[in-house]
Nucleic acid binder design. Structure first.
Length: 490
RNA sequence: GGGCCGUUAACUCAGUCGGUAGAGUAUCUGCCUUUUAAGCAGAGAGUCGCGCGUUCGAGCCGCGCACGGCCCA
């Protein structure tokens, strides 16, 4: 990126002249011994450091600067927070202070000093020794308004992280959330694995995949839309409790709710049913919320969401008729359902089978209303090609989806482990694909073969991690919880 | 894919009726050893997203395009 602006040019010139004076602008011998948080902890433990503070040796980025001729106040920021420092020429010496005079906001500095309280009572570091650690040759955004332009925030996330403390907090929370899910499952003897991102047959979900090509193998591959069929191969292999937290890729639209690559937790437990997973899900979300927020009540936008179990449960049919306002008598009449959908300006294709029509109606009429955690059960078999059929009503499956704050958060079911049934389901999907449904599942003959060796009864679930992070950080857009959301090239 | 809004200095933003581009911060110079959006004095800094059109004259009006935001599909 070529920049001709005067401000940038002057920054470069200044750095060049400092280097010409023999100063190393990028040394790597400053040894950090403390963090900003060490100072706060030390102050708490000693209440007040009256008989002289210990020496602290820390480094960070200069994020503010107030100069007074032969002294200055500035704040530095490290990974644990920020602290004010006070530097005086007669403390650090004339030579060192001359270098300090050339320090700008944005530079990295190393400081050795003691803690003291200023006239206004702010605990600060009195600088005894000062070091330039890394020079910035491009100015930081404005100190008061910071960086606001959403496009710049996403394209130059590092600036967003430097300038906006709430953004740092969101991503720290994201890390804690992932850790909490991981710890919860590991504690229950689940084994964390990694399965292929590049798959010859994209399976495990209804979605359009990204295509790629392997030169040496001379074959087309797809970025995975889900890890499901590989994780279940591991269950067949005897990994009775297994999970993966990783990226899925779906070649679809970008919105406040969708990024082409997103993070999914998927887990499988042998000898469990979807009912067991409903209970486990309640426990898991309570655990994560307590770890991250210390509470089971979430404030999301205008809603207070209560995670205390048990959560509401409702069948898909009941939800459609009670919450969706759909007349119960049209449930079995496809023509009337299509007419009902058209009345509500929900576009449907004639080729859609009954289950898909119900799902579309649900998305529009019911989903936005499910604010408190709700498990929807009783999903039709034709839209659940990997789920076990319900033993008393084979038109339905032993499946649930979890909704919170009007969004789908998780999807789980008792797994279909009958290879003959699975093959028939795949064949129906292939027929749907031939009829024009681009999102229908592919036939995966090798997966059928794996099932033929025998898979224990099991239940599995996927949890949309980005959506959970949005929920726990009160984020409106998925771009606020993904470091580098996809944008078009400029 | 459609609708609405945005794009002006490094950053945050003004810009009237179409008449040679403004502020604050930042930068540079000078003064300043307890400030915290420090202060005072002075200076420099612009491809007004890109292109075409209308006009004597366009940041402003019209058309097209690009990128972004929100909403809808």
């Amino acid at each position: 990126m070529q920049e001709t602006s005067e401000v940038i040019r002057k920054c470069h010139e200044k750095a060049r002249s400092m280097a010409a004076d023999g100063l190393d602008l990028y040394p790597n011998d400053f040894k950090v011994e403390h963090t900003v948080s060490d100072i706060w902890r030390s102050l708490e433990e000693n209440k007040e450091i009256e008989e002289g503070s210990p020496i602290f040796i820390l480094a960070g980025r200069v994020i503010s600067m107030r100069r007074f001729g032969k002294a200055a106040f500035f704040h530095i920021l490290d990974r644990t927070g920020k602290i004010q420092a006070y530097i005086q020429q007669n403390e650090v010496g004339k030579e060192s202070y001359a270098i300090f005079k050339k320090i700008d906001r944005g530079d990295y500095v190393g400081l050795k000093g003691t803690v003291f309280q200023t006239k206004t009572g702010e605990w600060s570091l009195l600088v005894h020794e000062f070091f330039l650690v890394a020079k910035a040759i491009r100015p930081l955004p404005e100190k008061f308004h910071g960086l606001k332009d959403p496009e710049k925030r996403y394209r130059q996330r590092y600036l967003d992280l430097i300038m906006n403390q709430n953004v740092r907090e969101i991503f720290l929370k994201r890390s804690l959330i992932v850790q909490a899910f991981r710890n919860f499952l590991v504690d229950r003897d689940f084994c964390e694995v990694e399965t292929p991102m590049m798959q010859p047959i994209p399976g495990g979900a209804e979605a359009k995949p990204f295509k790629t090509y392997h030169n040496a193998l001379g074959m087309e591959l797809f970025l995975r839309i889900a890890p499901e069929l590989y994780l279940k191969r591991l269950v067949i292999g005897g990994v009775e409790r297994v999970f993966e937290i990783n990226r899925n890729f779906r070649n679809e639209g970008i919105s406040t709710q969708h990024n082409p690559e997103f993070t999914m937790l998927e887990f499988y437990q042998a000898y469990a049913t979807y009912e067991d997973l409903i209970k486990l899900t309640e426990e898991m979300f309570v655990f994560v919320a307590k770890e991250v927020l210390g509470d089971t009540t979430i404030v999301y936008q205008d809603n207070e969401i209560n995670l205390n179990p048990p959560w509401q449960r409702m069948t898909l049919y009941d939800a459609l008729t009670t919450l969706g306002g759909m007349p119960p008598e049209i449930l079995d009449d496809k023509e009337k359902m299509i007419a009902f959908a058209t009345e509500h300006t929900i576009p449907l294709q004639k080729s859609h089978r009954r289950g898909k029509i119900l799902a579309k109606l649900f998305d529009v009429l019911v989903e936005p209303k499910l604010i408190q955690p709700t498990f929807i059960t009783g999903y039709p078999t034709d839209i659940s090609p990997l789920s076990r059929k319900n033993s008393s009503d084979p038109s339905l499956t032993d499946r649930f989806e979890l909704f919170i704050a009007g969004r789908e958060i998780a999807n789980g079911f008792s797994e279909l482990n009958d290879p003959v049934d699975q093959k028939e389901r795949f064949l129906q999907q292939v027929a749907d694909r031939d009829a024009g449904d681009e999102e229908a599942h592919y036939m995966d003959a090798e997966y059928i073969q794996a099932l033929e060796y025998g898979m224990p009864p099991a239940a599995g679930e996927g949890v949309g991690i980005d959506r959970v992070v949005m929920l726990l950080t009160n984020a409106l857009s998925i771009r606020e919880v993904i470091f580098f959301p996809h944008l078009k090239n400029k």
